[in-house]
Structures are given as C-alpha cells and as structure tokens.
Design a protein around this nucleic acid. Sequence first.
DNA 1: GGGTAAGCGAGACGGTACGTCAAGTCTTCTG
DNA 2: CAGAAGACTTGACGTACCGTCTCGCTTACCC
Lengths: 190, 190, 190, 190
Amino acid sequence: MHHGNRHGRSEEARQAVLEAADDLLVEKGFAGLTVEGIATRAGVAKQTIYRWWPSKTEILIEAFVDDAAQYLTPPDTGDLATDLRRHLARLADFLTKTDAGAVFRALAGQAQHDPTVADRLRADHLTHQCARDSQPLLNAIARGDLPATTDVDSAVEQLVSPIYYRVLLTGEPVPRKYTNHLVTQYLSQT
Amino acid sequence: MHHGNRHGRSEEARQAVLEAADDLLVEKGFAGLTVEGIATRAGVAKQTIYRWWPSKTEILIEAFVDDAAQYLTPPDTGDLATDLRRHLARLADFLTKTDAGAVFRALAGQAQHDPTVADRLRADHLTHQCARDSQPLLNAIARGDLPATTDVDSAVEQLVSPIYYRVLLTGEPVPRKYTNHLVTQYLSQT
Amino acid sequence: MHHGNRHGRSEEARQAVLEAADDLLVEKGFAGLTVEGIATRAGVAKQTIYRWWPSKTEILIEAFVDDAAQYLTPPDTGDLATDLRRHLARLADFLTKTDAGAVFRALAGQAQHDPTVADRLRADHLTHQCARDSQPLLNAIARGDLPATTDVDSAVEQLVSPIYYRVLLTGEPVPRKYTNHLVTQYLSQT
Amino acid sequence: MHHGNRHGRSEEARQAVLEAADDLLVEKGFAGLTVEGIATRAGVAKQTIYRWWPSKTEILIEAFVDDAAQYLTPPDTGDLATDLRRHLARLADFLTKTDAGAVFRALAGQAQHDPTVADRLRADHLTHQCARDSQPLLNAIARGDLPATTDVDSAVEQLVSPIYYRVLLTGEPVPRKYTNHLVTQYLSQT
DNA sequence: GGGTAAGCGAGACGGTACGTCAAGTCTTCTG
DNA sequence: CAGAAGACTTGACGTACCGTCTCGCTTACCC
C-alpha cells in the first residue's frame, strides 16, 4: 500500500477517491454521499481529500468530465439526420441509464444550490458538451448540407433542451422514438 | 398570543413558517436553510415544524405551489401568438427574477437528489403547471385556430423546455426576445 | 367516564394518577417516568396532573406515604426483642422487596438532587417513620423494660441506619439474620 | 492550542470536562447539570464528551473517585480510638462540607434511579472506601489491640452507616461530637 | 329544568436538552 | 513530505418531555 512519498501526490489515491465517489453516489444517492464515506471506501485519509479537492462536488465533477467526453463524442457519418439521431439517442441514454448520468443529475441538482458548482459545471462540462452537440451541425454546414447562416446555438437548444427537461423535471423516459422525433421536427423546419 | 388549541394547528404558525422558509432561502440559499433557522425566524418551536412537515423541502413546496398557481395563470386574449408570448415571458420572469423562482430552482435541484421530492414536485406543481402551459393551445383548438389533431404535449415541451434548460443549466438570461423567438418558431412550424 | 364537575377534583383521576405513577416507576424506573407517560397510562390529561401536583415526585410521595404507614406499623407484643426483630425485618422487606420500597429508593435518590423533595420526604414520611421506629422502645420504657433515660433517637439510628446503608449504597440484601443481629447487638449493649 | 492527534485523547480536554462538571454540579445542582452546559463551560465540544463518557454521571464518578481517595486516606496513629475518631470526623466533613461530598450525594441519588450508576459507584468507589474504613481496625488487629476474630465488616457498617443515614436521609448535621459518640459506643461494646 | 362555571380529556404550542452525524481543521507518526 | 489515522470544534439533525395554553364536553349546583 502507498503511504505517501516525497514526490508529489499519489495517483493511486486520486483514482481511488474518484471511483469511491462515483460508486457511493450511485449506491446511496447524493444525500448519502459524505467525505468520510468516500475516504473510508477509498481507503484514504479525509485530509488527503481535503488537500486536493475543495468539496465533494468537485470530486464528482472531476470524475464526471472524462466520462462525458468519452461517452458523448458525436458521430460523423456524413449524414446530418443520422448524426443527430445517433447523438441525441446516445445523450439520452447517457443521462438516464448510466452511472455517469446519475452523477450528472446530482451535479445539476447541486448547481441549483451552489453557484460555484454551477460555474464549475458550466466551465468544465457544459461548454464542451455544447460544442459536442454542435458538431454534427457544423459538419453539415462544412459539407454544405446546411446554410452557413444556420443559427447553430439555437438549433442545439431546440434539440437537446427537451431531453434535459424530461431528465431533470418530468422524469419521463426519453426513448429513441422521442429523440428521433426531435430530429425530424428540427429538420422539417427549414 | 396563540399557544395551541384543540381545533388543530395554528394557522399563524403555519404562515410564519412558510414565510420564514421563503425568506431564508432567498437570503442564504438552500444550503444555508436549516430547520432551526426557520424555527427561530418564524418564532416557532422546532417541534412544531416537525409536527406538520416531514422535511424542509416540503415546507418550500407548500410555500411555492400557491405562488406558482397565482403568478402563472395563462392569459386568454383570443389570439394564440399573443397568449403564448405573454405566458412564456411571464414564465421566464417567474423562474429567473422572483423569489418563488429561486424556490423553484432549489426544489428542482433537490429533486435530483431525492426521489420523494421529485415526486412531490411533480404531483403538486409540474402537472398543474403543464396544464397551465397547455391552456393557450387548448383555447386555440377550441376556437378552431389550431387543428384538433395538434400534439399539445409535444408543443408544450418544445415551447418551455428551452426556458428550463437555460434556467437550470446554462444560467443564461431568458429575455423576452428569446421567448418570442420560441413562439415564432413554433407557430411557423405548421 | 368522568369529565369533570363543578365542585372539586375527581377522586377517580387522582387514584388513576397515583397508580399509574407507581406502576410506571416499577416498570421503567425513575428516569423513564414522565408526566406524559403517567397521563397516558392513567387516561388523564396532562393538565389535570399539573393542576394538582407540582411535580412528578410529589405524586410519588403522595402514593408512597400511605403505603409506608400501613406496611410499617410497629408491632406491640410486650417483648422488646420480639418487637424490634419483627419491625426491622418488616422494614427491610418493605425497602427491598415491595413496589413501595422501589418508590422510596427513587424518592430518596431524588432528594439528593432536589432540596424540596428532601424536605417533603422528611416532613411527610421520615418524621412519621422515625416515630414508628421508636415505638417499640417507647413501649418498653413505658413497661419499665428499659430505663427512662434511654437515648431513643440514638438507639433508633443505630438500629435502622445499617439497613438504609445497605439499601441505598451497597445494595447488599438485608436478610432476617442480619436484622436480628442488629437487635441482638443493640440489646447486648446495655 | 491542542486539536487532537493520533496518540489519542486530549488530557487537556479531559481535565477541563471533569472540572467543569464538578463546578456546575455545585453551582446548579444535578438537575441543572447538562452535557451541553459542561461542554460550554469546559470549552469543549459536546461530541468530545460523548466520545469518552457514556453519560454525565460517569464524568462525575471519574471526577469524584480521586478526590475521595485523596481526602479519605485513614490515619494510622497507633491508637485505634484516635484513628477511628479522626477518620469518621473526616468522612463526615467530606460528605457534608466539601464539593466532592456534593458530588457523592448526587451520585448516590442517581444510583437509586440507574443500576449502572449504582454498579459503577460500588466498583469504583464504595469497595475502595470500605477498605479505607476498615484500615484502622485491621491495623489494630495487626497490633494485637483487637482480637483477630473481630467482625470487621460488621464493625465498619456500625460505625459509618449512621453517618450516611444522616447525610442521605435526615439531612441532620454530623458534628464531631456525634462521630466521637459512634466510636465510643463501638469501643465500649467489647 | 335551563343557565353557568368548574374539572376534565385532548392536544398544539414555545422551549430545552438530548444523543448522533458529518463537516472541515489540526497534529502525529509511518513509508 | 504525502498519506493514514484519528481527535478536535462546530453546528444541525430529529426526538422526547417539559410546563403552558386554549378548546369543547360533561357534569352538578343554583336560580
């Protein structure tokens, strides 16, 4: 076991903390997620956590960002409709069915209570996510399949916001049928 | 002064608690909102709160529901475009600029952590709010301004979800211009 | 059921309270004896208790005094040794084996914490008990079996205090053999 | 300032708690002695108290035992009468006039309500006190001033129980004259 | 024999202290 | 010198009773 060394932080401890946080969130929910619990589960001293993360939400963000980037890289098939359908379907599954999705919902929830969490979430995730969501449209524009004047931001909002609405508020499922419908609706608009 | 009687609970105390909860949420945020704080501010015993509310979120819901119903009653001018523009603008203002809106954001946040809060929020507010959001469209259908086959639920989601997306996630302002744009986009769709 | 009348307290309620207090003390001990518990058990309103007794110890004293007077009336056989043996044996049994004895120990305990309880216990019980303890000796003096100069108070202290010492402090049993020994010791002294 | 370390508990905190408990008992009596009060007075967190003591009576016992051992060490002058007179007088003063005596009375009181307190008081104090009370007699036997057949336990009970009787029940003072009388009476018995 | 007032049950109220939990800080020792 | 261990202060939690206060019902007396 690692017990500290004189050459910088322990990557071992870092990983253990991130995984413990993820696991515990899924197991017990955000309310049951405590720094002490993470420390115990990770086999790490509380102080080690406080040394490197200002709060338990920062741990979750750090654990979450990579997952999101990895899972939500948009496809590029050369066909806008296909790209959008796949991307939205994947986004919906990510948010509703994966552990990382549970972490996202917890973070989005905490962001309502704590502006610093909101800021971190936007800076470290949402902007990147927005960029990923835009990619299929930008590709289409580059291919000439969409006019260069297309309002990409607006289009992204139109496409993804109903998904978040269901995920964060109504709790309704977000089936493929529904995400496909969103794409169809958007494409038929022009 | 009132100190209890056999007719059941003290309306005085109930009001004091609801107001104190609202005030403290706005003042200190959800994290700083404690049952003890509410009790002190309301001039009420902690036990009185626990006697009538199972948690601090239930207090907020009770305090919130009436406000929402009151503030968000949709207009009925006889013109769909006008009704929708006014209603969305009012919704956006409610969510972003009023104290009750702050309460809503806190509740929506807490709903991500606690399924019972989510259920209560849906049962006591969201369903009613959905009905209110649908009203302008239903009125238009009744007038014959929209086809009877209109998918009202889908239309409502399309209209309001971008507002919630901004309110809950991006934190961007939701100006009148934006809500008007949503209406125009929806109406031009058919 | 009795629901009050215009002229004086309900004897029914009084008895119910005294019995409930006794029972609960034996069942749950003094720490578990609450006014609310007594009220519930007695089928009486808390207010009725507070109307007639200033504290729960006063209830116990009232319940106790009669029991003691009844149980501890000293015998008068015409023989000092017999009277003393019987009286001490009965006192020991009363203190260690009866419900009333448990009440006494609780009251004696509470008297250490609360001077008003101590005063009430002395005024309402101990002085009378002292008189009862002295009776066999006074009878003997009256019969001429003891000199009139006998220091009765000192004798009583010598006879009974070892019993209380065991009951209140060491917790040792106080068998007949032991009380008889006390009598023998005292009588052999002269 | 000390804020905890891995070598276990803070002796500083321990002392502060014991002294605060003693002081508060004398100041406010047992009823007014609260864990919160002790914590505040000692400048210690409530949790620290609960970490190390199961109840406030355990605090008092711990605070009391040393005091008693120190104050009540019996003399050994080589003369039984002198030893007993001095020891009983000192015991009486200890119980009636010192702060530690007040603690003892409170503990003896609580022992009537709570068997675990009774057990602790016997194990941690009474047995040792009994041994101390016996010492003068044992010394006398060793010197040959008393027959080896002397019933020491019975003698101790005879000598000290009237003192406890007055302290715990009648509340009468226990002057030197009285304790001397007890000794005289005992010695004249043989 | 109807009105009136005291005693009663019920139980909500403002409080105080309970014992628990986790937060975040600090200190010491180990590798 | 980072990390494991863990004691510390702080403060909120939810609970249990306290003693006080209506309230409406049920008598029993009194006009």
